[in-house]
């Protein structure tokens, strides 16, 4: 009894072994998986090493273009984070100074400007900013 049980079991084992020899596609899938795994770990590790310091976010605001729209003008601003630290709740302000000294300001808030990335915002003005002096800057941020 015990013997038949044993032989049955070993027979099953060997057929299993035959069946379990991985098909070519399994190797291909594993190779793709390995490549992706190493790529993800490598990219994250490299980023981690690169940003090893404790640098705060550094955000440049730049005017990309000025477009006339129905109620006035919209100034498209590009925010570029030159540090690898992410900034949250970034406020951007545009200050329009007319020749007679009149000042108009508009602000916008951007949820996140990730490290080494850019985000865009828009500021509305009633007067044509192209005829006056316009300055844009990032006001501040919160840590995520």
């Amino acid at each position: 009894m015990a013997e038949t049980g044993n032989s049955k079991k070993s027979g099953k084992r060997s057929s299993d072994r035959q069946r379990s020899r991985p098909p070519l596609l399994e190797w291909v899938a594993a190779a793709v998986g390995l490549t992706l795994t190493l790529a993800v770990l490598g990219a994250l590790g490299w980023e981690g090493l690169e940003s090893a310091g404790d640098d705060p976010p550094a955000i440049d605001a730049e005017i990309r273009r000025i477009v006339p729209v129905r109620p006035g003008y919209v100034v498209e601003v590009e925010l570029r984070n030159r540090s690898s630290a992410t900034a949250a709740a970034v406020q951007v302000e545009g200050e329009l100074t007319a020749a007679d000294g009149a000042v108009a300001t508009s602000t916008a808030t951007v949820d996140y400007v990730p490290g080494d990335s850019t985000r865009s915002a828009g500021l509305f003005f009633a007067d044509d900013p192209r005829l006056h002096r316009l300055e844009v800057r990032a006001l501040g941020y919160a840590e995520p």
């Binding site: 099953k12 084992r13 299993d16 072994r17 069946r19 379990s20 991985p22 399994e26 190797w27 899938a29 594993a30 190779a31 793709v32 998986g33 390995l34 490549t35 992706l36 795994t37 993800v40």
Partner: peptide, 21 residues
């Protein structure tokens, strides 16, 4: 498979992670 070995587990895990990515 009863023969499930560490090698097969590794292949499985790599394939699953690749699919996930």
């Amino acid at each position: 498979e009863e023969t499930a070995s560490v090698k097969e587990d590794l292949l499985d895990a790599l394939a699953a992670y690749g699919v996930g990515v």
